[in-house]
Design a protein around this nucleic acid. Structure first.
Length: 224
DNA sequence: TACTGATCATTC
DNA sequence: GAATGATCAGTA
């Protein structure tokens, strides 16, 4: 499987990403000698994996930043014809064990979002996967307002979990950050410690950034 | 049309 | 089974 070596610096990563701007997924896959999937229902995550290979991400499947050498996380962002994100952005799984409860400063969400390479990708439903183009990538860190928003949401959501209110926690909570199921199917279960400290099991959840938040990031930093 | 809850592929 | 990468699809 072809894969670029990891970038040594942020600048090198950014230059690599910028060279991909305007290219189609077909062109990129062709360079890497990979087939473009047919049928988008079965291609979830393919664009992300393609970009990892093209840019030299090194930490696939590990709960650490994609570019571990320079501590940068890679996120592709599907953009519709209006330049708005078409989907929410998955951040990480939600810790449900008391042992993993921590402060915002030490949270995985904050670590993952501290430094992100956003790669906008054209994603109108009527454009076939092969013809979708890569946009102008940029490296982002939350500014004071964004960080405050994320911290407030994170603290509210984690407080509900630590109070044992997981059952009434749905995707409606959180202004920028929300919690939604993150599982192979609705029957999946993961261990959870409840309010009484007893162990139980529940559907695995993930933290996601709402499209409205990533849209603001796009407007502050980027353009397609 | 946007949003929530559900789901799909791959890898370890 | 659980982590990664996400998008699908029903419905409000």
């Amino acid at each position: 499987m072809p894969r670029m070596p990891p970038p040594g610096t942020e600048l090198e990563l950014l230059e690599r990403a910028r060279r991909l701007a305007g290219k189609t997924l077909q062109q990129l896959a062709g360079n890497m000698a990979l087939p473009v999937p047919t049928g988008q229902k079965y291609a979830k995550g393919w664009i992300g994996e393609l970009m990892e290979r093209c840019l030299g991400a090194s930490a696939a499947t590990l709960p650490v930043p994609d570019f571990r050498e320079i501590q940068v996380e890679l996120k592709t962002l599907p953009i519709n014809r209006l330049g708005k994100p078409r989907e929410s952005t998955y951040v990480c799984t939600v810790p449900l064990n008391r042992e993993s409860f921590t402060t915002w400063e030490n949270s995985v969400v904050r670590k993952k979002l501290a430094r992100v390479l956003w790669v906008p990708v054209e994603a109108a439903p009527d454009i076939p996967l092969a013809r979708r183009r890569i946009g102008n990538a940029f490296i982002w860190s939350p500014d004071a307002d964004e960080e405050r928003l994320l911290r407030t949401d994170w603290q509210e959501l984690m407080e509900m979990i630590s109070l044992g209110e997981l059952d009434c926690l749905n995707a409606c909570f959180g202004e920028a950050l929300q919690i939604r199921p993150k599982a192979a199917h609705a029957g999946a279960r993961t261990p959870v410690s409840n309010a009484a400290g007893e162990s139980a099991s529940t559907l695995p959840r993930g933290f996601y950034l709402r499209p409205a938040f990533t849209y603001c990031v796009l407007q502050r930093y980027g353009r397609i």
